[in-house]
Amino acid sequence: MYAFEYQKPKSLADAAARAANEDAKILAGGMTLIPTLKQRLARPSELIDLGGIAELKGIRKEGNDVVIGAMTRHADVAASDLVRSTIPALADLAGMIGDPAVRHRGTIGGSIANADPAADYPAAVVGLGATVITNQRQIPGDDFFTGLFETALEPGEIITAVRFPPAQKAAYMKFRNPASRYAIVGVFVAQTAGGVRVAVTGAGPSVFRQKEMEAALSKSFSPDVIKDVKQSPDGLNSDIHASAEYRAHLVGVMARRAVEKCG
């Protein structure tokens, strides 16, 4: 790691003011940032640890929605009675992220702000039509992820929470990379008030919605109706573990299994 200054602000306003500095980086759970620093792939002048801001933690119900504070850990989402009873698929997904030690530190805010193409949470944010709440505004999940490791966040903008509307049915299926255990393909399927959503992570540079599958499932919510929907490999990721064609195929398989899992 290169040397940096460390700050642990007590308030969101203080954190935001510091985060306006372009050379500063926000530290949430650190599960991606710290390995990145260790590999000397980033050289921030300052780390702003959000761990001291109480208002960013916790899970609460607002109306029918589940609102998860940005600094809430994956393990807490996975174990939350509120999440388990309202959107069990979301708790399942949180329990599939990384390994137990990672789930004990990693946070939802950190995960989605990082926008790793193989991360799990983006599939839930888009798949459930969630809203990302920041210190400045509310961003619809569909508009949040803008590309490879890119989001709609502006400099100094800090995620404070994510609001998840409940779904009638939802499930997440993930095909793990045999080495890293990140998603080679993860598909989140949900029947929501706004229609069926199929969100795919791992396969492309950023999470995306599989609209053809959504259309087919809107007519009849069963695995069979998407059997013949072909995901195009164009633009999908390709690496030693999975070609674009294999990923495209797995999108179909994971989507069908997710629909099956919805019951």
């Binding site: 650190g30 599960m31 390995p35 004990h104």
Partner: peptide
């Protein structure tokens, strides 16, 4: 173990 949870001590700063 940090405050009751298993954590990778290589992925957390001492100051945290």
């Amino acid at each position: 173990d940090i405050d009751g949870d298993s954590v990778k001590s290589c992925t957390i700063l001492a100051v945290q």
